[in-house]
């Protein structure tokens, strides 16, 4: 689990990022400063504070950074799923517009920015390539009272980073298999049970975040 010394090794370098409310052990390091810092963004949780700045402050500068990083990735992803460059460009633009429009739904204790943007790109793909809308689970709305604490957010984001590293470290063939499954050119039956990725921990973290959410909704 997450311990205070992990937190304190992170917090001194990361005063309150835009819109991120620090709590508990983080608070004493925060000094009430409200600046975006390189520390949080680059070493621990890249893009989280930018996305939260978009969400809470409608910060256009932060959005432009998100665009610069994710635009070319979303476009490449969509081309891998079978779109030509022109269509992928158009769709990638729409995905980024959706990022702006739906930022209020972003919950950093349940998804990394890449994960959240992936789900938007995937839905766009289904929309465009299959001309279907995709039924989505009922939203779990969350208000200020359900704001996750910093430890939860950092834990989930670190877990996401580790998952990314685990994916990169897989034997090439296995990694390609997983990528193909997500680009949509492979059956899942043979790999779902054996991705070779450590999904248990990230699942437990999301589970905890959901419990908090349910609790606060009562």
């Amino acid at each position: 689990m997450f311990t205070t010394n992990v937190l304190s090794s992170v917090c001194p370098a990361s005063p309150v990022a835009n819109g991120v409310k620090m709590r508990d052990s983080c608070k004493e390091h925060a000094n009430g400063t409200k600046t975006l810092t390189e520390g949080l963004r680059n070493t621990v949780v890249p893009w989280v504070d930018d996305l939260i700045a978009v969400r809470d402050d409608r910060d256009e500068t932060a959005f432009i950074r998100v665009f610069g990083h994710f635009g070319p990735r979303v476009k490449a992803f969509l081309m891998r799923t079978g779109m030509d460059a022109a269509l992928a460009e158009e769709c990638a633009q729409e995905v980024l517009v959706t990022v702006w429009n739906k930022a209020h739904l972003y919950d950093a204790s349940r998804a990394s920015p890449s994960t959240w943007i992936f789900t938007i790109a995937r839905n766009k793909k289904i929309d465009v390539l299959r001309k279907q809308r995709r039924p989505e689970p009922e939203d779990l709305p969350w208000g200020p009272e359900a704001e996750p604490d910093q430890a939860e957010v950092l834990g989930l984001q670190q877990e996401s980073e580790q998952l990314g590293r685990a994916l990169r470290d897989l034997p090439e063939k296995q990694r390609e298999l997983i990528e193909k499954a997500y680009f949509g050119d492979l059956s899942h039956s043979e790999i779902a049970d054996q991705t070779g990725l450590p999904l248990g921990t990230i699942k437990s973290r999301i589970r905890l975040a959901l419990e908090r959410l349910r609790h606060s909704m009562k």
Partner: peptide, 10 residues
């Protein structure tokens, strides 16, 4: 979904 995010990253 996090695997999908990691795929998008790579």
């Amino acid at each position: 979904d996090a695997v999908g995010g990691a795929v998008l990253d790579t």
